[in-house]
C-alpha cells in the first residue's frame, strides 16, 4: 500500500504555507499528523499532487492562556493535550477526550487541528469543540477569519475551510464556575472510531442547570449539536428524569450510517446512552 506520487513541501512559516496553497489550489493537501490522510492516500482514496507538511511551522504549536480563553495551536498533538498541566487545570475535558482517541502511537502524531479539519464525523474533537463553544482561526491570503465550531462542519469531509486556507488555532472560552463536562464514548476496541459518543458541558447554580451544551459523534454526516436536548435541561435539576428526557431528544436528531459497528437503531440507542452517561458525569463534576 503505497500512495500515488506527489510533490512534498515542508515550509517553515505560515506565509509560506499560504503561498503554497495559493499556488497549487485544490491539488494540494495539508499534512498534519498524517494518521487520517496517509491511510487514505495509501488506499488511493486521496491522491493529492502536492503535500504540504506543517510539522516545521512553529507558530502552529503551543497551548496558552490568553485573557479568558485557552488558545491551542492547530498542530498540537493529542499527547500534548493529555500531558498539558494548563489544560488539566482549566479544560480537563480535552485530555479526557484525547485519552479516548486512537492509541498511544497515533496520539504522538495526531493533532487537534487535523482531527477537526479532516471533517470526519467519526473523529472525536468536533463534537467536543461544539460542546465547548470553540472558535477556529482560519488563515488564508485574505488574512484571518474566525469561525464557530457550530458553523464549521458542513457535511462528510466538508468544512468551512476553503482550498486556500489553513486552520491555525483553536480558541476555547474558560468555563464559568459551576461547570462540569464529560465525554462518553462507546467503541469496540482501542483505536476504533466511536459506535456513538456524546460530549456534555453543563453549568449548575443552586442545584439548577443554567447552561447546557450537548454534541454527538459519529451519528450523522457531521458531529451534531443537540440543541433541543441541551435546552430541555435549562432551568431544571439534572436528575434521572431530566437526563432521560434530554437523551430522548438527542436521539431524535441522530441519522447514523449502518456499518459493522451497528445498524441505525442500535447506534441511535447507543447515542442516547452516551448522552445519559456524559450528563451524569458532567453533572457530578459541577460542584464548586
Amino acid at each position: 500500500m503505497i500512495p500515488r506520487p506527489f510533490e512534498y513541501h515542508a515550509p517553515t512559516a505560515l506565509p509560506e504555507v499560504i503561498a503554497l496553497l495559493g499556488q497549487y489550489g485544490d491539488e494540494a493537501k495539508l499534512l498534519a499528523g498524517g494518521h487520517s490522510l496517509l491511510p487514505m492516500m495509501k488506499l488511493r482514496f486521496a491522491g493529492p499532487g502536492h503535500l504540504i507538511d506543517l510539522r516545521k511551522v512553529a507558530e502552529l504549536k503551543g497551548i496558552a492562556l490568553v485573557g479568558g480563553e485557552i488558545h491551542i495551536g492547530a498542530m498540537t498533538t493529542e499527547n500534548e493535550l493529555i500531558f498539558s498541566t494548563l489544560l488539566a487545570k482549566h479544560l480537563p475535558l480535552l485530555a479526557e477526550v484525547a485519552r479516548q482517541i486512537a492509541d498511544p502511537q497515533v496520539r504522538y502524531k495526531g493533532t487537534l487541528g487535523g482531527d477537526i479539519s479532516h471533517g470526519d464525523p467519526g473523529n472525536d474533537h468536533p463534537a467536543v469543540m461544539m460542546a465547548m463553544d470553540a472558535t477556529f482561526v482560519l488563515a488564508g491570503a485574505h488574512g484571518e477569519r474566525l469561525v464557530k465550531a457550530s458553523e464549521f462542519f458542513h457535511g462528510l469531509y466538508d468544512t468551512a475551510l476553503t482550498p486556500g486556507e489553513v486552520m491555525t488555532q483553536i480558541r476555547l472560552p474558560l468555563p464559568p464556575a459551576g461547570t462540569g463536562s464529560s465525554y462518553a464514548k462507546l467503541k469496540r476496541k482501542t483505536g476504533d472510531y466511536a459506535t456513538a459518543a456524546a460530549a456534555a458541558v453543563v453549568q449548575v447554580k443552586n442545584s439548577v442547570c443554567v447552561q447546557a451544551r450537548i454534541a454527538l459523534t459519529n451519528v450523522g454526516p457531521t458531529a451534531l449539536l443537540a440543541g433541543d436536548a441541551a435546552a430541555s435541561l435549562v432551568g431544571k435539576t439534572i436528575d434521572e428524569a431530566a437526563i432521560g428526557h434530554a437523551a430522548a431528544l438527542a436521539m431524535k436528531i441522530c441519522d447514523p450510517t449502518p456499518d459493522l459497528r451497528g445498524d441505525e437503531a442500535y447506534k441511535t440507542a447507543m447515542a442516547g446512552q452516551m448522552v445519559e452517561r456524559a450528563l451524569r458525569t458532567a453533572a457530578a463534576r459541577c460542584a464548586i
Binding site: 500500500m1 498524517g34 494518521h35 496517509l38 491511510p39 492509541d103 502511537q105 497515533v106 504522538y108 502524531k109
Partner: peptide, 22 residues
Amino acid sequence: TSHCGACTVDIDGASVKSCTVL
C-alpha cells in the same frame, strides 16, 4: 493500516508507526 504496532520505531522521543509516516 496503523493498527497493529509491529512497525513501531522511536522518532524524536515519540513512538511512531513507521507504516504511517513518510
